[in-house]
């Protein structure tokens, strides 16, 4: 089960020595009467073809780090670089364009647009990027959904699908623009064990068969153990990084 790859619409780093995403001293503090530190001085690099788990207890800053890496949030200090390019001072439109072309998001809840069909949901990022012709977009969306065994549900709405199917549609949407990086926030968190396994395999295939980099936040230590690299956070700080095939730090 592998989604088809179109010619990559984004300019890749010429040299593999440049990380796909890099966090340099990233700190995020929520302002308020009592400022809250979400993540503190994170330094990380993510390269091509990595399957990375970000683990840690609730409130450790896993999702916050993912949002920062995905340019959904801005660091209070430090810098997130995509393909070596600093993003902190990018205009809103450029950040949006970078998200659209370089990053795919999968959230814990499918977050599909309820009034749109499955096909339209997958077409949405492609239409927003507008790099392919209408026919090519349609063809690609159908191919991705077919590869994820969703070809019988193209014209259904999200509420007509099971939880696992919706999450697969969310993965299909994340892959719509063929981004090199997929960010997943508890992608199996709301699924039963069977559906969880399906989605995990799907993400695994993205790395193994399509060479993408998948960074997933997860509570599930079993799943994390099956990923190539594990990053553990506690209280917003990086406390451990485990190489491939090693158990995550507790």
């Amino acid at each position: 089960m592998s989604a088809p790859t179109a010619s990559r619409p984004v300019e890749q780093a010429a040299s593999s020595s440049v990380p796909l995403i890099e966090a340099k001293g990233v700190t995020r503090i929520l302002p308020g009467i009592v400022p809250t530190t979400l993540v503190h001085d994170i330094n990380l690099q993510f390269r091509e073809n990595e399957f990375v788990a970000i683990t840690g207890p609730s409130g450790s800053g896993k999702s916050s780090l993912l949002y920062l890496l995905g340019l959904l949030d801005l660091p209070t200090s430090g810098e997130v670089l995509i393909h070596g390019k600093a993003t902190a001072h990018m205009a809103e439109a450029e950040r949006a364009y970078t998200r659209l072309s370089q990053l795919g998001f999968v959230f814990q809840f499918h977050f599909l647009l309820p009034e749109f069909t499955i096909l339209d949901n997958v077409l949405l990022p492609m239409r927003a990027l507008d790099r392919l012709s209408a026919e090519a977009m349609q063809e690609r969306a159908v191919e991705i959904l077919s590869a994820l065994s969703l070809s019988d549900h193209l014209n259904k709405r999200p509420d007509q699908l099971s939880g696992g199917q919706r999450q697969r549609v969310a993965v299909a949407r994340a892959l719509a623009n063929d981004p090199p990086i997929v960010l997943a926030d508890e992608p199996t968190g709301s699924l039963d064990s069977h559906a969880s396994e399906q989605v995990f395999q799907l993400l695994r295939d993205l790395v193994d068969k399509q060479g993408k980099t998948v960074i997933a936040v997860t509570h599930d230590l079993g799943l994390a153990q099956r990923m190539d690299r594990r990053i553990q956070l506690i209280d917003g700080g990086l406390v451990g990084e485990t190489p491939q095939d090693s158990p995550p730090q507790q």
Binding site: G70, A93, Y97, T98, F111
Partner: peptide
């Protein structure tokens, strides 16, 4: 969701 996917504010 749309903004997280990359739709700009405009």
């Amino acid at each position: 969701i749309m903004k997280s996917l990359g739709l700009p504010e405009a």
